[in-house]
Amino acid sequence: MKRVFPIASLPLVSLLLVGLPMTAQAEETFSDAQLEVMAGSCANCHGTEGRLAGSVPTIAGRPADVLSSRLLDFKHEENGETTIMDRIAKGFTDAELEALARHFAGIDLENDNEPEE
């Protein structure tokens, strides 16, 4: 008898098809603890959780797509504007940069009184 895909799995299949990006690299997920370590050094210029404002811009709470495109530009484009971020961004994979962008976008600027997990 011809095998037929159970109907229940169809949405899953379509999700899989939709979810596959054009590039070879799938969207990686990192644990919170891993992201904390990955994002650790960012605080040295951007302040804890990227919240500090000054000559070095705040990154906390900025839209993920803005942060992501900035980071990828620093890495891939000959960006005349930056003095240091190109040298740093080149040290991370695209997936890591995108994860970092989402991480900082997710910092709640309203809520800065507690030591965040």
Partner: peptide
């Protein structure tokens, strides 16, 4: 990745890096 400031940077770039140095110090 990494590396030095460019050898032939402009005066403006040097001034900007001096500003970022202060920003770095405050942040860290």
């Amino acid at each position: 990745a990494g590396g030095l400031s460019p050898a032939d940077a402009s005066e403006d770039t040097r001034a900007l890096e001096a500003e970022y140095a202060v920003g770095w110090y405050n942040a860290i």
